[in-house]
Amino acid sequence: MDYIKAFITGGVICIIGQILIDKTNLTPARILVCFVTAGAILTALGIYDPIVEFGGAGATVPLPGFGYALAKGAIKGVKELGVLGAFTGGVTATAGGITAAIVFGYLAAVLFDPKEKS
């Protein structure tokens, strides 16, 4: 059951992205930025938690989920460390993903060459 929920939640978030691409002139880079920011704001407002509760990976894998993890981390950091936690919490919670992106990104870029397109 949680697979179906994940499929639908993730799919719907992607549909929102697709509508933004087709109907507005937002570039993919801007959409990524908007989604991460929106995820963090929705989390702060307490709206994203129920979505994660329902959709599981369907809500955490899309980029708003990255914003969710950042905001969750910051809130948790504040609870544990006070004002310092606002600065350390977000990146601490997402350190694994960010580091993986840098390391795997670097390796892939070094090991492979872009292919010609047709």
Binding site: V33, V36, T37, G39, A40, I41, T43, A44, F66, G67, L70, A71, G73, A74, I75, G77, V78, V83, G85, A86, F87, G89, G90, V91
Partner: peptide, 11 residues
């Protein structure tokens, strides 16, 4: 933008 927003949320 993601990290900056999270800091604001934390503050």
């Amino acid at each position: 933008y993601g990290i900056s927003t999270s800091v604001i949320v934390g503050l």
